Computed example of a mutant assay.
Amino acid sequence: MSAIYKVNKAEFMTSGTKPSHYPPTELPEIAFGGASNVGKSSLINSLVGRTKLVKTSKTPGHTQTINFFNINDAMVFVDLPGYGFAKVPLSVKAAWGPMIEGYLAGRPTLRAMVCVMDLRRGVRDDDMMLIESAPLFGIQPILVFTKADKYGRNAAQQRRREIAKDLNCPPGELLLYSSTKGEGGEALWDRIRQVTGV
């Protein structure tokens, strides 16, 4: 494979907070999860070659619903609310856990979860909970570290080796990504196509 997947169609489908709001489970789904302001929306936009498909915000906690996007009528990208630093009401924050857990447990077409983290910060406790929860729901975690452009090439590789050692996994399992430079898209598309069969 090893080629950027050509996206001819990328459209918002719907958003919701409970199963009755979600679209029918017909296409394979890829969920994107991560801390607030980790660059998740920018990653999705750059991955599909659009600038405004997913709304980006400098305000943590901007995404408060689960948002579904049709990609080429072949798969669905699912943007999950960010966690961690969100300055949102505690009642809203408390509802996110059950909402996300309910989605992860109840979608038979969900193939993988892209766990988005900041290369500078590494894996935090909330990130670890997300990574460890994926296999419990029968979902493959894909570990992606954004903001790779904040490092030189050698320094970024060294940082990846350090994080891989902490996680006790091969460095090759960790994908480096830069939304501003578009680097890492090929490797991430490879993983997504492997799990969706597209």
Rank of each mutant, 00 (worst) to 15 (best):
G16I: 07
T17Q: 10
P19H: 10
P19I: 06
S20D: 08
P24N: 05
E26A: 06
P28V: 06
P28E: 10
E29I: 04
E29N: 02
E29G: 04
I30H: 00
I30K: 00
A31I: 03
G33Q: 08
A35H: 12
N37V: 00
N37D: 06
N37Y: 00
N37A: 00
V38S: 10
G39Q: 11
G49S: 03
R50Y: 06
R50C: 03
T51I: 07
K52R: 15
K55M: 13
K55L: 12
K55I: 11
K58S: 12
K58I: 05
P60V: 02
T63Y: 00
Q64P: 04
Q64D: 04
T65L: 13
T65G: 01
T65C: 10
T65P: 03
N67A: 15
F69H: 02
N70I: 05
N70F: 10
I71M: 09
I71G: 11
A74Q: 15
M75I: 02
L80N: 07
G82D: 12
G82Y: 06
Y83R: 09
G84R: 08
K87W: 05
P89R: 01
L90H: 04
S91F: 04
S91E: 13
V92E: 15
K93L: 14
A94G: 10
A95L: 09
A95N: 13
G97N: 14
L104R: 15
L104W: 15
A105K: 15
A105E: 14
G106S: 14
R107G: 06
T109H: 13
L110N: 08
L110A: 08
A112C: 04
V114W: 12
C115Q: 15
C115F: 11
M117L: 14
D118T: 08
L119A: 15
V123F: 06
V123S: 08
R124W: 01
M128K: 15
L130R: 10
I131Y: 10
A134I: 00
A134T: 00
